[in-house]
């Protein structure tokens, strides 16, 4: 420190200049109070704080472990419930399909019966109409023969012949047939 002292010019200020860290006069004081501080911290730590924190951490670990187990259990329960739900859904679906099929068959049966009924009615109606048409046709043929006979008789008379009913009838019949 010789240079510093000479420059500073006052020996009393020597300890004020320089590095306070290297002022060995203060070391016993620093070491003493540091040891006091460390001992106090050590006592506070080991006697009070650390056992408490260790206990809390252990408890939390246990609690978390328990919670995890509970969560696992709940998860498996939820899985079982889901499976049951899926099963029920599947069954319901099958039931619904069955009901649909039954209903369809029933409707088909009704439909078939109604169709057959309608068919029968239609064919009955058609047969009646055909009979009617035949009657009308026969009636028409008879009327034509009548008219032809009368016309033929009248023609014969007008031409000065004698109307022979039998001959006319035969002739008309022959003509109508041809």
């Amino acid at each position: 420190m010789s240079t510093t002292e000479t420059v500073a010019g006052a020996a009393g200020e020597a300890s004020e200049k320089g590095m306070p860290q290297l002022n060995f006069a203060t070391w016993p004081n620093q070491v003493f109070w540091l040891l006091v501080a460390l001992v106090i911290i050590y006592i506070v730590m080991t006697k009070i704080a650390m056992p408490r924190i260790a206990a809390v951490l252990a408890e939390r670990k246990g609690r978390i472990g328990g919670d995890l187990a509970a969560a696992e259990e709940l998860k498996s329960k939820a899985k079982a419930a889901e499976a049951a739900y899926n099963l029920a859904l599947e069954q319901a679906r099958l039931e619904a399909a069955k009901i649909i099929a039954a209903t369809k068959a029933e409707i088909q049966k009704d439909l078939n019966a109604a169709m057959a009924d309608a068919d029968a009615q239609i064919s009955a109606k058609a047969a009646e109409s055909e009979k009617r048409i035949a009657e009308i046709r026969a009636g028409a043929v008879q009327a034509v023969a009548e008219v032809a006979r009368e016309t033929a008789g009248a023609l014969v008379t007008a031409l000065g012949g004698t109307a022979d009913d039998k001959a006319i009838e035969a002739a008309v019949a022959a003509r109508l047939k041809g």
């Binding site: 620093q30 501080a37 106090i40 609690r63």
Partner: peptide, 30 residues
């Protein structure tokens, strides 16, 4: 044994650590 400014701050350090650890470990909440 003379209390110095360093002693004061050593003491403050001790007090801060003690308060932190004591208050911090007191509630023991999960």
């Amino acid at each position: 044994y003379t209390p110095t400014n360093q002693t004061l701050w050593l003491g403050i350090t001790v007090v801060v650590i003690s308060l932190l650890m004591l208050i911090g470990s007191a509630p023991r909440k999960v």
